[in-house]
Design a protein around this nucleic acid. Structure first.
Length: 230
DNA sequence: GCAAAGATTTGCT
DNA sequence: GCAAATCTTTGCC
């Protein structure tokens, strides 16, 4: 149940089985939900990126099927979670029919409920990273997390996973299953203005892939990553 | 079997 | 604004 007391349906797997760019666009405004009852963490997706298939030279699928990206080749509505830069997890939603390797990266989420739990999870993640650098580093990180505005708790792909405690154990989890611990729900109320732009962090990809406007975000939303598009 | 780079974030110069 | 942190995955020898 969302903060407005509404009971929302899980996100439609049919929509996710459609073309990646369309699926990405429709995921903006949907809810990402972890847990239920008083422990529920819920946020509104405000930024995504589409990775359209093996032909997309920016996609992890560009080398064909490997152990890491295997779930991208499977059925839609399933989580593809990978580790980037040895430190951060990133959450994707597998899209398009089974056999087509496409996914949508969830880049940013605006907290709707469970913000305190998200902040604790961010703190736990920061402690794990700074622990070996000593007490002073830990104290500094704790202050930084405590000072974050609510809108910044999941304002980036690595931060979404930190705030929702998502890691590679969730790789392959079904996000369209009612009652699942980690799931997508649709918010019928819709989103005002969705803007499109080039994807972030894919400078290694040749044109035309590098410039394709396949990043979608809610214009002016403070939870969009790194101030992009505000 | 080894070298290189990465769909990021953070903190310091 | 830039570089470091950190480790898995991929590509090539």
């Amino acid at each position: 149940m969302d903060p407005g007391g509404r009971d929302l349906p899980v996100f439609s797997r049919d929509i996710l089985s459609g073309p990646a760019v369309e699926a990405a666009h429709s995921l903006v405004g949907a809810h990402l939900v972890r847990g239920s009852g008083p422990d529920e963490r819920r946020g509104r997706i405000v930024e995504v990126e589409a990775y359209v298939g093996q032909e997309d030279r920016a996609s992890h699928a560009r080398f064909g099927q490997t152990k890491r990206n295997a779930v991208m080749f499977g059925p839609p509505g399933v989580a593809y979670v990978y580790l980037v830069y040895g430190m951060y997890s990133c959450l994707n939603v597998v899209v398009e029919p089974e056999g087509r390797a496409a996914a949508v990266l969830i880049r940013a989420v605006e907290p709707l409920s469970g913000a305190a739990a998200m902040r604790s999870a961010r703190l736990a993640s920061a402690m794990a990273r700074t622990g070996r650098h000593g007490r002073a580093a830990e104290a500094g990180a704790a202050r930084s997390v405590a000072a974050l505005p609510e809108s910044a708790l999941a304002a980036g792909p690595g931060l979404v996973c930190a705030a929702f405690s998502i890691d590679r154990r969730h790789d392959g989890a079904d996000l369209c299953q009612p009652g699942s611990d980690l799931r997508l729900e649709s918010d019928g109320s819709g989103v005002p203005a969705i803007e499109a732009g080039p994807r972030i962090g894919i400078g290694y990809a040749p044109e035309p892939w590098r410039s394709r406007p396949w990043r979608f975000f809610v214009r002016g939303n403070p939870a969009v990553s790194r101030g992009l598009g505000r």
